[in-house]
């Protein structure tokens, strides 16, 4: 990527110019070489190494035999991995859409020039400064039926109040979503707010002259203008979804049963606790393929197609 962008500005109109640009290009190339090497060796190299290991029978130490697709067959026959995959879809969809909606609404609220804006901004953004581990532990306490919300409401006199999602197999994954939303919405709000502040004041004046209701301006005029912000926020949130691990470990440890297992935890457990490098890397490879499949159309639409049209 880097090397391409260096070459792009040079305009080879004449031989001397080309030579001069080659002279200036060399130091730049040298300066970028370490980065390029790191990208090639550490990122791409490790990725290929992981994929290769997923076709082996490696246990504690890597071993370079050929095991065919056996690890993948085991992986898809494994309840826990299948549950993990379903969970990450549930979490991903609800977390990203939830953060975008809540974040946008909070940003709109602050954008109304409310009094104490600084306070609200801080309060909304504050959860993001917590690590997922702290978030997880706090929500675990808060949602624990014997300690937190349920007990609080029951102690106030509502004896029949029940909120046991955390310990309920079917609902536990949604508690992870709730904690995730609490953590991530603030960042989305900050990004959206920056976008809202960048909206031209004249647009608002024009809309007011035409007598368009405010909500309509937000949905039909402002939101389309915020597209870059939405994309940025989505990408940031999506990386959070893929690497979701610490929140689950701190909050439920994958339980009750295997109800809140996620792929990253599956990989970590098998690589580092269960001495099963083969199965762990197979799961990691599936995660990689999924991410590529999800990202490919977007990358194509964003980078490949426009360039092709210009050329």
């Amino acid at each position: 990527m880097e090397t391409i962008s260096i070459r792009a500005p040079s305009t080879p109109s004449s031989a001397t110019k080309a030579r001069r640009s080659a002279r200036t290009r060399l130091p730049a190339a040298i300066a970028l070489l370490p980065t390029a090497l790191v990208v090639l060796v550490v990122y791409i190299g490790c990725m290929l190494w992981t994929v290769r290991l997923s076709f082996t029978s490696s246990t504690l130490l890597p071993k370079l035999d050929w095991f065919g697709l056996t690890q993948y067959m085991r992986l898809f026959a494994n309840d826990r991995f299948v549950t993990s995959a379903e969970n990450i879809v549930i979490f991903g969809v609800l977390f990203i859409s939830g953060c975008l909606i809540i974040g946008f609404l909070m940003a709109v609220f602050i954008d109304q020039n409310v009094r104490g804006e600084g306070l609200f901004r801080t309060v909304f953004l504050y959860p993001y400064s917590m690590s997922f581990v702290v978030t997880g532990v706090a929500w675990q306490w808060f949602l624990n039926p014997g300690l937190g919300l349920q007990k609080l409401v029951r102690d106030m006199g509502f004896e029949s109040f029940t909120f046991d999602w955390l310990v309920n197999q079917r609902m536990a994954i949604y508690t992870i979503v709730i904690a995730g939303l609490w953590h991530g919405s603030g960042l989305t709000m900050a990004i959206m707010l920056a976008g809202l502040r960048g909206v031209d004041k004249d647009l608002w004046k024009a809309a007011k002259v035409d007598g368009i209701p405010t909500w309509r301006v937000y949905t039909s005029v402002v939101l389309p203008l915020l597209r870059p912000m939405v994309v940025t926020a989505t990408v940031l949130l999506a990386t959070g979804v893929v690497k979701l691990y610490d929140l689950v470990v701190a909050m439920t440890l994958g339980g009750p049963g295997i109800a809140t297992e996620v792929p990253a935890k599956f990989v970590m457990d098998h690589l580092f606790e269960r001495n099963n490098i083969g199965l762990g890397t197979a799961a990691a490879t599936i995660m990689l393929i999924t991410v590529v499949i999800v990202l490919a159309p977007w990358v194509y639409a964003r980078y490949v197609r426009p360039q092709g049209r210009h050329a």
């Binding site: 309840d79 197999q169 049963g257 295997i258 269960r274 199965l279």
Partner: peptide
Amino acid sequence: SPPNFSGAMQDAVTQYWNN
């Protein structure tokens, strides 16, 4: 047991216990 088997057992036990 190797950790791999005890891990798989653990997955089975926790599913049975919680369901």
